[in-house]
Amino acid sequence: MACFITNKISVSPQQTFLSDSFFSGSANVAEERKLRAVEPNYKETIAEAGLRRRMSRIVKMGVSAGLACANGADGVDAIITATGLGCLADTEKFLDSVVRNDESLLNPTAFIQSTFNTIGAQIALILKNSSYNVTYAHRGFSFESALLDAMLRIEDGDARNVLVGAMDEITDLSFAVMERLGFWRNGAVMGEGANFFLLSGSKSSADDVALVDVATFMNRKEEAFDKCVQGFLSRNNLEISQIDVLLYGSSDKSYCLGGVCSAVSEAVDYKKYCGEFPTASSFAVWLGAEVLKRGALPCGKTLDGAKRVLVYTDYQSVNRSLILLEI
């Protein structure tokens, strides 16, 4: 059973936060192999200074996106967040004091804020929301797991509206480590962002995009993954030809996803807009929903009657996922 994206908010390296500029203007490009988020004015998004003062960048990005997304919702019955690496800056800050000060003069705030559920917890605190609240932290499956949980909750009737979001941040250390690990070979750039969605069991307006299906696949070689793609399409009663737009985020540009690449009218490498990070697929869902709603691609190219977007994400060739959107 599908659910509907009744609101969505993106803080990304592009002009996406409460702005149309990304679809009308040109795209921001990476500097020094990093695509840094265009951050909101936090004094506006999190008005109370007392709330902001302990928040690191990822927390501010996530809370800003989450609050904006929940704004105007007819109740939020669950808050589900996802992050691959969590609050890295606070983690590094605390680790730094453990190492440099030899386990003395420790800053409790950095430790408290370093937990993976900080953003979901802060949103609950600010909204005074006592409903189901959980955080997924599993590499390239973090956001997909959150979506799956949200969809099942809606299907079970345990929630009408679920706030789902994902975030990761760039830090100098994480960039340097990944550089040493060879992540940025093949032209990949590091990205970051916070993307939130309000998912509902019913539409709030006629052009709401449906989140139809999400699936994760561990350790599948490409040949085996071709079969997974076929299985995913057939369980949704679809032929390859019924997919209009493919948003792919993969380091392997030669892989054709069981023929989907050649069959679709448009295939877009979404990570050129948001960069590489464990929850990048959350940006792709935002982008896919926006593309279907506008009937246009970010470059301005219009799409006639595009009905379906397939999001394909490959994280380190270990975590692959498929997400199907429909209007």
């Binding site: 007392g50 302990r54 003069l105 420790l106 800053n107 409790p108 705030t109 408290i112």
Partner: peptide
Amino acid sequence: LGLDSIDALEIILLLEK
């Protein structure tokens, strides 16, 4: 200033530092 229990811990740290 409206400080809370976490600030108290930070002030303890401040006094030591």
